[in-house]
């Protein structure tokens, strides 16, 4: 397969910085210049600059930019409050909303030629997932103290030998399924688009996949956030 053309990597190579040819580099500088890292920074800069431009001066009568953000943030706030309660939402809204915006933008940016989705690398998604996984356990411990272990022993004491491994396995499976689902969907989209561009780019063959890609990007961002909210809500509520 041909190498995809990534304009940040080209610029960095022109500047004389080492851009790794594999997925990750060997030296520290190569690892920093890997495409998924540079595009992560691009997404972060995009979110910073766009929100600064549209929300720099808040007005009583919102204009177009402020209206958009009010709908997005208000919708997410309602959705979180429905699922995990007002108090938890106020505490964790910055983290989860940042994840939602970051994942949505990072997924969608890969549809533009010359860009790549940072989420099509397992490193990015695994990092996000580990943060979510540790957070939901910390919240469980803070809500229940040491009684948190009751979440893992099932409803009756004589079922403990059966339920403890099952609960532990299904808890660790969250780590795997949450990261690999996002990574797999986005990488499949990127690879498919790349192959179709190479085979029949002149006949607009990638166009239907791009339409599907928009749907997949939004749904995967939504799934990630929904599951984060559900895990936190479950860690917080009382054991059955």
């Amino acid at each position: 397969m041909e190498h995809p053309i990534l304009f940040i990597s080209i610029i960095l190579e022109k500047l004389g910085l080492p851009v790794p040819h594999g997925f990750v580099g060997h030296t520290f500088l190569e690892q920093i210049c890997a495409p998924y890292m540079t595009y992560t920074w691009l997404v972060m800069a995009f979110l910073f600059i766009v929100s600064k431009l549209t929300l720099g001066n808040l007005e009583m009568i919102p204009g177009g930019g402020q209206n958009f953000w009010e709908i997005v943030i208000g919708g997410m706030d309602d959705f979180f409050a429905d699922n995990m309660g007002r108090e938890m939402t106020d505490k964790l809204f910055p983290m989860i909303a940042t994840f939602a915006l970051y994942i949505a933008v990072a997924n969608l940016i890969g549809l533009i030629p010359g860009f790549m989705s940072p989420t099509s690398s397992i490193n990015t998604t695994l990092a996000l997932t580990i943060i979510v996984w540790i957070t939901h356990h910390v919240i469980g411990f803070r809500a229940h103290g040491l009684n948190y272990y009751k979440h893992f022993i099932g409803p009756m004491w004589w079922l403990i030998p059966l339920m403890l491994p099952i609960e532990l396995i299904s808890n660790f499976a969250r780590l795997l399924s949450l990261s690999i689902r996002l990574f797999g969907n986005i990488m499949a989209k990127e690879t498919l688009l790349g192959i179709l561009f190479m085979l029949a780019g002149a006949f607009f063959a990638p166009l239907p996949i791009m339409v599907l890609g928009v749907l997949v990007s939004l749904v995967q961002a939504m799934v990630f956030v929904l599951l984060t909210v559900v895990y936190i809500a479950q860690a917080q509520e009382h054991a059955h």
Binding site: I169, S170, A173, L176, S177, I180
Partner: peptide
Amino acid sequence: TFVACIFI
């Protein structure tokens, strides 16, 4: 999720 549980 089903597959991840089995593999774990």
